[in-house]
């Protein structure tokens, strides 16, 4: 019996490499699903939330346009189909929010339930906790994107280019890297400020504001347009919508993909470095479990 325990212990400490971390990421994602299924209403809400948020936008849009075609939007982006433009653009909202909030607050959540220190003493990399939470939120938010798009097609007559579905998924995969960089930065804020929800609310709302989800960035103030260009959400939404509306014929798609790739590298590298430094700093200060 004692020998068995020792072997498990030794096995635990011998674990290393990418496969071990991926297993840990998967286990963390499954654990979070199990926790969430204890609150079924919460699961349902986070899936239907983006769709419910879309309805007031739809009513507001209909009030100003008064029909299915917007000449003003046509002049700005080349399409008068405002409903498809907004429905596909805002579909990404749920995934982004899920990433910002769910993953950004992962450390705080573990801290609140008293499992953070236990997790930190396991022989997995610290960043794996964040990647595990990201994996869960990707699945959760991704489900919301699919549901919103299906509902938009079924109930509002939005048309989606079938050839664009796979490339749009590839864009989501690309965007995850850059978003993860932002999430690492948000985790740093939570680790330092503890009650960082207000800062997360502020940053995520600001990123949503400058993202071309329901309007093109040309409508923004020139200063905000610069911020928008530096945000990975902008290029993600543009290319995601471009593929789903026009397939491979989407205008400006190559520029968007290249910009997204560049931002992926910048955001992930900066995010990981920030996280490493902050995590070490917080542990050195002994402030990991402080509220």
């Amino acid at each position: 019996m004692n020998g068995d325990k020792e072997s498990i212990f030794q096995k635990m400490w011998k674990r290393e490499g990418l496969r071990a971390e991926i297993r840990a990421i998967n286990a963390l994602a499954i654990k979070q699903w199990k926790v969430e299924f204890s609150y079924p209403l919460s699961v349902l809400w986070f899936i239907v939330m983006p769709f419910l948020w879309f309805i007031p936008m739809l009513i507001a849009g209909n009030a100003v346009v008064g029909g299915s075609e917007s000449a003003a939007l046509g002049e700005l982006v080349g399409t008068t189909d405002w409903l498809s433009y907004i429905a596909i653009g805002t579909a990404f909202t749920g995934l982004a929010m899920s990433m910002f909030w769910g993953t950004g607050m992962s450390f705080r959540r573990e801290q609140s339930v008293g499992t953070l220190e236990t997790l930190m003493t396991t022989p997995m990399k610290r960043s794996t906790i964040v990647w595990g939470s990201m994996m869960h939120n990707l699945q959760h938010g991704g489900l919301g994107v699919i549901l919103q798009l299906v509902a938009a097609v079924l109930f509002f007559g939005v048309t989606i280019n079938a050839w664009g579905i796979l490339p749009a998924l590839a864009i989501v995969a690309l965007s995850i890297l850059a978003l993860q960089g932002i999430v690492f930065a948000l985790t740093c804020i939570v680790l330092l400020a503890k009650q960082g929800w207000m800062i997360i609310e502020f940053i995520s709302s600001a990123l949503m504001l400058v993202a071309p989800m329901a309007y093109p960035i040309a409508i923004l103030h020139p200063m905000l347009q610069y911020v928008s260009v530096a945000s990975p959400l902008t290029w993600t939404v543009e290319s995601f919508r471009g593929f789903l509306m026009y397939g491979f014929a989407a205008p400006g798609i190559m520029t968007a993909i290249v910009a997204l790739l560049i931002l992926d590298v910048i955001y992930v590298v900066v995010g990981i470095l920030m996280f490493r430094y902050t995590e070490r700093y917080v542990r050195r200060k002994g402030a990991l479990s402080q509220f």
């Binding site: 009030a63 100003v64 504001l209």
Partner: peptide
């Protein structure tokens, strides 16, 4: 903070209906 929630509506309505006003509205 509510400015960040209000602004997307105003910007969307501007993009769809033109600046400030629309006949339908």
């Amino acid at each position: 903070l509510p400015l960040l929630w209000l602004a997307p509506y105003v910007l969307m309505m501007t993009a769809l209906g033109g600046p400030g006003t629309s006949t339908s509205f």
